[in-house]
Amino acid sequence: MAEERYFISLADFLGFLKRLATEYEIFVPSEKDGRFHLGRFVPEETDSLRLNPCRVVEPLKAFFFPPREKVAEYFAEGAEPEAKKRIIVGAKRCDVAALKILDFVFLQGDFEDPFYKSRRENTVIISSDCGTPVESCFCGMFDSNSYPVNGFDLNLSEVDDGFVVEVGSETGRKLTEGFDGFKEATQQQLEQRDNNRKEADAQIREKVGAAGLYPAEKAQGYLLAKMEDAMWARHAENCVECGACNFVCPTCHCFLLIDLEEAGKFKRFKDWDSCQYPAFARVAGGANPRKRRAERLRNRFEKKFDFFPRNMGSYACTGCGRCVDACPGKIDIRELLKELAT
């Protein structure tokens, strides 16, 4: 299939979102204190839109796998998956790629997670090219592209006065149909897009080199050779077991089922959990296969760089660098990855 792409002006794109806002809850990026976050799009109050030049602060996963979600009200029919129709604007390659990991976890195997599935099916992803990586980004380790090539419904590339829009799915195509703001993209606009992309690709490549990193394919072998290394204990010394690295990670998917009784009703919740918490792997009776922080820190790397490659054929890290920014102990995944190779 030939690449299907259009041009839309910023004004028309806002009109497009306003039209869709009657049917969808829409999230768009907005800047606050120099950082971008996703917030609700309020049609009446919005006359401009600035796309995030890089990933937003929060991982995309929370839209599909919220920090706490009711998954059962037993013994009754009390927990229906949420089916709210949503559009997310501005997701970057690192987040779109992370959804593939979560899809594998929650949709593959003998059991589907109906809650994730419903949210996923009802959410439209309008991604956008990454322009300027932030300090902590190292996505170039995992992909040579700074922009997504699949996994989106529509993708936006900023050009003069608007966007080049690429259609990535049937859902995306349907949305564009019947809205006359989508024009044929000119050769000049496409060239501008391609030049911007080349520039951004070069930036992410440069960052990987500057950080002393290497192509991701090598990480698994390096890790397995360093399983007993003293580096884990050394880095883990700064870990305060807060779980921030897990919570901001777009691929970390671990959760705990929590039961509560409220007003005579038995409810079960799926809560985010962290493999850095001391009791994460503890069993009844007290045995704990990962008693030390060093073992728990290593666990995070084992999951991302060994477990997922073996089970899914893909790394469960996209190089977004959020964990670097979030860690109060300044544990830097890039430094550990670099050290694995030494």
Binding site: F111, L256, D306
Partner: peptide, 24 residues
């Protein structure tokens, strides 16, 4: 094998041994 299986369906991540989940 005994690990702390929570979800039972290979999603929650608790019961990993190496490349396996004990639950699935």
């Amino acid at each position: 094998m005994e690990k702390n299986m929570s979800c039972g369906i290979g999603k929650c991540g608790h019961c990993r041994i190496g490349s396996f989940y004990v639950c699935k």
